[in-house]
Computed example of a mutant assay.
Amino acid sequence: MTSRPDPAEFRRVIGRFATGITVVTTVADGVDHAMTMNAFTSVSLDPLLVLFCVEKKARFHRVVLARDTWAVSILGEDSEAASSWFATRGRSWDDQMEGWATHRGELTGAPILDEAIGSLECRTHAVHDAGDHTVVIGEVLSVGAPADRGPLLYYQGAYRRLGNG
């Protein structure tokens, strides 16, 4: 029997897989909630499904599981500040979106970042336990591509842009 891989080594190796960066948002009791996610992917074309993985100890976990709709803002190469802000633990609960230009999704009411290069509105389709995270699968209700810029990427623990190595 082989030994279990070291979690630190796993993290170093998996960091070699480049990911895009999103901000997932929802609104509960009139309060906007948001969290940066790079564990996001498309799942199916029929029906249209996407998924994200949220850490169980994150405040956003409880909120997004209590809501059945949410939105995704796909971040562009000039959105590093937004990604960093919405990844900050312990930021103010009541005014998370203050200072960020947003508009409301027509179907979900969730905030969508105006600087996003793509957006999705979704309804929770399924939720799966996955160790210290929960996998949330969403049915896509609407899509938008408001800007045509390159993506913001995350690779080996740092923000990257296409063409910058």
Score class of each variant (00 low, 15 high):
64 V>M: 12
90 G>L: 01
48 L>V: 09
117 I>V: 15
77 E>S: 08
48 L>G: 09
86 F>P: 03
62 R>N: 13
128 H>S: 11
126 A>M: 05
109 G>F: 00
103 H>I: 00
65 L>I: 08
97 M>K: 04
96 Q>D: 09
46 D>L: 08
128 H>R: 06
140 V>H: 03
100 W>Y: 13
138 G>P: 04
131 G>I: 02
95 D>T: 14
44 S>Q: 07
42 S>A: 11
91 R>G: 04
106 E>C: 02
89 R>E: 07
72 V>P: 02
92 S>V: 09
50 V>T: 12
140 V>Y: 00
92 S>N: 14
33 H>Y: 15
45 L>E: 09
139 E>A: 10
73 S>G: 10
35 M>D: 08
93 W>R: 15
124 T>H: 05
101 A>D: 14
44 S>P: 10
102 T>H: 13
103 H>L: 08
81 A>V: 14
96 Q>G: 12
105 G>K: 07
43 V>E: 11
52 F>G: 09
30 G>S: 09
19 T>L: 12
94 D>E: 14
136 V>K: 06
132 D>Y: 02
75 L>P: 06
98 E>Y: 06
139 E>I: 00
84 S>H: 12
112 I>D: 08
17 F>D: 00
65 L>N: 11
92 S>M: 06
20 G>Y: 10
109 G>A: 01
71 A>G: 14
105 G>E: 07
49 L>A: 11
40 F>M: 03
58 A>Q: 12
136 V>D: 04
54 V>N: 12
56 K>Q: 15
122 C>I: 01
61 H>E: 13
132 D>P: 03
123 R>E: 14
110 A>F: 06
130 A>R: 00
54 V>D: 12
67 R>K: 13
32 D>Y: 03
140 V>L: 02
132 D>C: 03
139 E>D: 10
140 V>F: 02
110 A>K: 02
80 E>Q: 15
78 D>L: 06
63 V>D: 01
100 W>C: 04
72 V>H: 07
71 A>C: 05
126 A>D: 14
28 A>N: 10
39 A>Q: 13
36 T>R: 07
26 T>V: 04
61 H>V: 09
21 I>E: 03
23 V>E: 14
44 S>K: 04
59 R>E: 03
26 T>I: 02
71 A>Y: 07
118 G>W: 07
62 R>M: 09
118 G>M: 03
100 W>I: 10
95 D>M: 04
101 A>R: 13
115 E>Q: 13
85 W>A: 10
109 G>R: 00
31 V>C: 04
37 M>H: 12
24 V>T: 12
48 L>S: 13
108 T>E: 11
93 W>C: 01
53 C>D: 13
31 V>T: 15
138 G>Y: 12
54 V>E: 14
83 S>Y: 04
65 L>W: 11
36 T>L: 05
127 V>M: 13
110 A>H: 08
85 W>R: 11
134 T>M: 05
127 V>I: 15
136 V>C: 06
53 C>N: 13
125 H>V: 01
102 T>Y: 07
39 A>C: 11
79 S>Y: 05
116 A>W: 07
119 S>I: 09
54 V>M: 08
65 L>M: 11
21 I>D: 04
65 L>P: 03
41 T>H: 03
103 H>F: 15
27 V>Y: 04
26 T>H: 03
70 W>Q: 02
132 D>M: 00
119 S>L: 10
73 S>W: 00
109 G>Y: 00
86 F>L: 03
52 F>H: 13
109 G>T: 01
36 T>S: 06
93 W>T: 06
34 A>L: 08
23 V>L: 08
